[in-house]
Computed example of a mutant assay.
Amino acid sequence: MNVIILYSAGHLGSAVIMNKLLAMPGVNIVGVVKAQPLTLSLRGRARVINHLKKVGWKFAWLLLWQRCIQILGYLITMVFPFLRKRLKPAWKIAVDHNIPVFHCGNINDEACQAFIRQLQPDLLISAYFSQILKKEILALPKRGVLNVHPGWLPVYKGAMAYFWVLNNGSDRGGVTVHWIDEGVDTGEILARKSFMLKAHATQESVLMYTAVIGARLLGRVLKRLMEGKDPRLHIVHTHDEDDIYYPMPGESAFESYFRQRRFFRIRDVLSVLVMKRYR
Rank of each mutant, 00 (worst) to 15 (best):
W61P: 00
R220Y: 15
T39M: 01
V48N: 06
A127Q: 09
G173N: 15
E136Q: 11
T210F: 09
L21S: 06
H103K: 12
L21E: 04
L75V: 15
A15T: 09
R86H: 14
K135Y: 02
I5D: 01
D109I: 05
E136H: 02
G13I: 06
L75K: 14
A127N: 12
V175T: 10
E110P: 03
G26F: 10
A46Q: 08
P100F: 14
M226C: 05
R232N: 07
D242E: 15
H239M: 08
K88L: 14
D122W: 01
W57S: 08
H11S: 15
K34R: 08
W65A: 12
R232F: 06
P150G: 15
I180S: 10
E188F: 06
P249Y: 13
L124A: 10
D181V: 12
N167I: 01
Y278W: 12
N168P: 00
E204L: 12
L190Y: 10
G169Y: 10
N167K: 05
H237E: 05
N108W: 09
C68H: 06
E227R: 11
V16C: 08
I29F: 04
R262L: 11
Y257I: 03
P249C: 07
Y7S: 13
M1Q: 02
A94W: 08
N50L: 06
K223R: 13
R265G: 09
V212K: 05
F80S: 01
A139R: 13
A199E: 13
G144Y: 10
L217E: 07
F254P: 04
G10E: 14
P37L: 00
A161W: 02
W152Q: 08
V16K: 10
W65H: 09
E241P: 00
D109Q: 14
A191I: 09
D268T: 08
H178E: 00
S41K: 01
N2E: 06
L119A: 13
A159R: 14
V155G: 10
G158Q: 07
L270C: 02
